[in-house]
Amino acid sequence: MAQPSSLRADTTIRLSPKVLFKILDDEAVLLDLQSGQYFGLNELGCRIWQLIPAHGRLGEIQDRLVEEYDVSTDQAWHDLEDLIAELMRRGLVSAVPEPPPENLAESR
């Protein structure tokens, strides 16, 4: 699993298939079926969770947050990185392993 510091704009995030997501007004509750634990997401967290399956790459999600919430790119990245790191720590999302660089793959 990637460490928070390793998150980059081209990092692709995947939702855990063992998590249920339930929207309540603008917020949401997550149920981790493996641990039986519940987590609450605020409005921003709820939106990020919804954007992950559609956009995957953090850079694209960041762009959507800048557009939808009228915040700076730095602020959007800060909020995004904080949440993704926390979700990764709890095993609710994971970073998709990056393929080896093309030149390395070709040399093998």
Binding site: K22, D25, E27, A28, V29, Y38, G40, N42
Partner: peptide, 11 residues
Amino acid sequence: LCPRDAVIEFV
């Protein structure tokens, strides 16, 4: 409580 926190309390 907001509905999100209410769900957690029900659980």
